[in-house]
Design a binder for these strands. Structure first.
Lengths: 362, 362
DNA sequence: CTGAAAGCGCTTACAG
DNA sequence: CTGAAAGCGCTTACAG
């Protein structure tokens, strides 16, 4: 029994059902949605007639039309600046998306993926003129240096969206699900302290769009009553933080070794290899003489040592972003919803015990 | 300058623009779409007035409304039976999706991801009652044993879709982008023959929903004028092809070794480890005495030997499926569009030279 | 060259 | 209990 392919045939619409059941579209709609508009009440027989007609005709409401009349689509938009399915398996986005998909599925929502075209100089959610997520009930954005404009426009449009990760947008109160860098960093300082480190440095290598890492360091410093000398903040910032790893690594190594720290927290690890080499050249044996903690989640290794890192809860951030978004969609008057999720530690091998306590002289 | 959040404020619509420009909606629409309806022609001044109003009001057409009037959304639906973003990075779908995303992006389309809920016993595209891809202009499906019903319904609906991979649906002529198992398998037989193998077996371990592998084997057998003895098809099928790898592996090893083949093409490799062990027990040293070719793409190793496999062009299949789908969307009257893409060989270490030619006796 | 009007397929106050 | 009608924001024959 071959199924004929009838390409442009008209779908069966609500009107068809109404006619077949001998009722008005109102009734059909109200039966379908199990909703009593105003004083509406449907007789059992009528309801049955409608349901029968629906089944017989194979009627299915058109989601586009529903959306037009203000209903939602159970659709969550996700905008990424690079391809979502990258060649390399472990992309930046993948872990987030695992969480996003899980939470979306739990809430019985589908995903609309919009990728900023790489053909554009500046990938944008508005590359095609209009908000590419508009078809979805709301959107998820990744916090990035380049997306301020989109965030402003989305906000103006009143489109519900949540930023995955934290970022401050001038004049905008965006909802987000972020990592709690502050607590995570503070915890690592405490841990280093417990391991016997008494001089712990923070290597600031770029202007952080979010203040959590440094703030956490400073808070731990205060908690532990460390002096400015014992918990120095080393300013390693350069005009272009991504330029010349050799130069930057060497500079960093000198500054950090000079500081006399036995443990350093790195805000960024771009020049980690070069740093490592230079430190060795300076006679500092890593990680024995100097423990390294990277305040990022990159699964880095250097010279064969897996680096001890902050573990950013990507999966949970994705899930939480979805949950927040669903709340926002449900009630658009809700203020910005923000959540910071606890970081873990990716146990590496570059955080070792501090130097043996030298008995205080005199 | 804080941007106020005005949540449920009305978007500026075409009508607003029309009013502002002092023209009718028709004109606005025709300017926006750069289209002359019937005899329509817009004066340069009028056009300019409209464009000015558009810019001033920040007007952007509502994609949902456009869709309602029969327009497309530049949206490709993808239905998968499991989560698209799996925990393990290299999932079955990932490679396909890389290709799909690339081709979609090249064509400036977005992706709608619909995942068959794992909570259902039987994941279905129609789990929510209606075709979950309906919002998209067309859909991509993965060929699977379980999706016959969906394919039938999609066809009845006249919804444009393409199957990734090949499968025969009773009574349905579906479009697909598939792997050319036939040519791929035949080529491998030829290669084995060139390597000196004179007895090459085909191990049939399950009922293949597509006949390419066996057909390719038989074709090569004919091309090479091999006898039934020199190119035996070993029937290893069991009631449940996924049950008891120990039993199946042992059975397979015996049958294959008994056949006297020096090279075997495996339709499936479920019990490969057990097969390997039993063959060794039988005194056959693998892969020296018996070359193994797996007619699947699984990046398998056995006993430390990377298995020589057919390389299924997943990426290219994904890309091609998108291209076909776009054609179908463009012209729904097109017959089923089908493409089989060439397989490569994943070079392993289990296909070795055949036995040294024994000079013919007499 | 331009506008009034119908239509896409729904939802939903409102009036019986 | 039920229906006629307006509206969502567009497109598009059709008539000026």
């Amino acid at each position: 029994m071959a199924v004929e392919q009838r390409p442009p045939r008209r779908r069966v619409s609500q009107a068809d059902v109404a006619k077949a059941a001998g009722v008005s579209p109102t009734i059909v709609s109200s039966v379908i949605n199990n909703k009593s508009y105003g004083s509406i009440r449907i007789g059992d027989l009528t309801r049955q007639r409608v349901l029968d007609a629906v089944r017989e005709l194979g009627y299915v409401p058109d989601p586009v039309a529903r959306r037009m009349t203000g209903h939602t689509n159970r659709l969550i938009g996700v905008f990424t600046y690079e391809s979502v399915f990258p060649m390399r398996a472990h992309s930046f986005y993948h872990e987030f998306l695992v969480g996003i998909e899980q939470a979306a599925e739990e809430a019985d929502h589908d995903l609309l993926l919009v990728t900023g075209s790489r053909r554009e100089r500046q990938p944008s959610l508005y590359a095609r003129g209009s908000n590419g997520l508009r078809l979805a009930d709301g959107g998820l954005l990744f916090g990035s240096a380049e997306n301020t404009d989109e965030v402003v426009r989305l906000t103006k449009e009143g489109f519900p969206f949540v930023v995955v990760g934290e970022r401050n947008y001038p004049g905008i109160e965006a909802s987000y699900a972020a990592a709690d860098y502050r607590r995570g960093t503070a915890a690592l300082v405490h841990r280093a302290h417990e391991l016997g480190h008494r001089r712990i440095a923070f290597a600031q290598s770029y202007d952080d769009p979010v203040p959590g890492r440094l703030a956490g360091f400073l808070q731990a410093k205060a908690d532990l009553a460390m002096s400015a000398d014992d918990a120095p903040v080393l300013d390693l910032r350069t005009a272009d933080p991504w330029a010349e790893p050799e130069v930057q690594g060497v500079r960093a190594a000198r500054a950090i070794v000079n500081s006399g720290a036995t443990c350093v927290l790195l805000q960024g690890g771009f020049w980690l290899d070069e740093f490592w080499a230079e430190a060795s050249r300076l006679g500092v044996s890593l990680p024995h003489d100097l423990s390294i903690i990277l305040l990022r989640s990159e699964e880095r290794s250097v010279d064969g040592w897996p680096v001890t890192e902050l573990d950013i809860p990507r999966n949970e951030m994705g899930r939480e972003a979805v949950r927040i978004l669903l709340q926002l969609i449900d009630d658009p008057t809700l203020g910005p919803l923000r959540r910071r999720l606890p970081c873990g530690v990716r146990e590496g091998a570059t955080l070792m015990s501090g130097p043996r306590q030298v008995p205080a002289s005199t």
